[in-house]
């Protein structure tokens, strides 16, 4: 299965009842997969008239209490941002998959990591964040989509899956039990969505809103949201380490770039250079605790991204006392393993 298809199947198995999407490369396989499979499962698939309509359909479906998903790629995600902001404000859960391509503008259809800021800093207007998970393999994409639905429902928030063209289009096998017997992050099943719009039968009318005009309402609402963000920051940090136990040099990379860095670490190790990798899985909340712990004995920290340097800012914020060196190539060009190896070697010789 390609990453795109696998994410679709994972969503269906996670109980996604509603999907709306709009064509954009490189995520089209996901929409096409959902068009076929959602019908088979007698769930709702809509090809929307635009990304804006798609996210607002998801807003409606989520307001109606259904697990809902949409997917797109960078320019399309830009169009969805208003809707995502409304969903964050109205506390509506949903999973939004961004199979990143290169920008700015129309950019390029090839892989990129240049939507990091957009994803981790809210992206739309207003004071909010969206939990953002970034898979480095098809198998992990499946796990994360499942988990994203749970996190979304548990906290009542939209959750982003930040994949890229490489993850979306790579074909990899998935262990069957990952699909069929997923480990659940939350032991308790999400309860009945008492806030959802289902018709006011035997209860007061429910209202889905993000507009708070009267004095004191909005600050109170934002305080409530702020507490939620703080709770997510504490509880939902995820990261992974590779060869980091005895490492002198740590390379930080996420998503598809972590696959390249992993190979680079192996090459460096072959040359007796004690390199290791730190791989953030949750980009917001950034895994600050584990990164801080991982760099205790580290001499130099390298950050590799397929962008002009976005995640590196979170690394600098987390471990400002360390020497941090950045290497990145922008979309349309994929860093080679040798590029990473050479960059590290050049800077440790000094």
């Amino acid at each position: 299965m390609t990453g795109n298809e696998a994410m679709g199947e994972a969503a269906i198995r996670a109980g996604c009842r509603f999907y709306a999407g709009y064509p954009i490369t490189p995520q089209n396989e996901l929409t096409a997969y959902m068009a076929r499979r959602m019908r088979e499962e007698e769930r709702v698939f809509i090809q929307a008239e635009s990304e804006i309509a798609a996210i607002n359909m998801v807003y409606g479906a989520s307001a109606a209490g259904a697990r809902s998903m949409t997917s797109s790629s960078s320019p399309g995600i830009s169009l969805k941002q208003e809707g995502i902001s409304y969903m964050a404000g109205a506390q509506l859960p949903a999973v939004i998959v961004n199979v990143m391509r290169a920008g700015p503008g129309l950019g390029h259809i090839s892989s990129s990591q240049s939507d990091y800021f957009q994803s981790t800093r809210g992206g739309g207007h207003g004071d909010y964040f969206t939990p953002t998970f970034s898979p480095a393999s098809v198998e992990e994409a499946v796990r994360l989509v499942r988990e994203a639905f749970e996190v979304a429902d548990y906290y009542r928030t939209p959750v982003l899956i930040l994949a890229d063209a490489i993850i979306g289009q790579t074909m990899e096998s998935i262990p069957l039990d990952v699909l069929e017997k997923p480990e659940l992050r939350f032991k308790k099943k999400p309860g009945h969505k008492s806030w959802a719009l289902t018709g006011a039968r035997g209860r007061p009318a429910n209202i889905i809103r993000s507009f708070f005009l009267y004095e004191g309402q909005l600050p109170r609402h934002n305080e409530l949201l702020s507490k939620k963000w703080e709770k997510i920051k504490k509880s939902e940090q995820r990261s992974d380490l590779y060869q980091a136990d005895d490492a002198h040099f740590l390379i930080v990379a996420y998503g598809s770039q972590a696959r390249i860095v992993r190979e680079a670490v192996d090459m460096l190790r072959n040359e007796k250079i004690k390199a290791g990798m730190f791989r953030p899985i949750s980009l917001w909340p950034y895994p600050q605790e584990s990164l801080t712990a991982a760099v205790k004995k580290i001499k130099k920290v390298f950050v590799i991204e397929q962008s002009l340097g976005q995640m590196v800012e979170d690394v600098r914020l987390t471990i400002p006392e360390k020497e941090i060196l950045f290497f990145g190539k922008t979309g349309g060009e994929i860093p080679e393993i040798e590029d990473v190896v050479n960059f590290v070697k050049k800077h440790i010789k000094r």
């Binding site: 359909m57 479906a61 208003e82 109205a90 209202i207």
Partner: peptide, 23 residues
């Protein structure tokens, strides 16, 4: 006094589509 949702500017029928298809 019945269930209601806001929608962003212009998107009411997309939101309504989402709700109606679910219910």
């Amino acid at each position: 006094d019945f269930d209601c949702s806001e929608a962003s500017h212009g998107r009411a029928l997309a939101v309504a589509t989402g709700i109606k298809r679910v219910h």
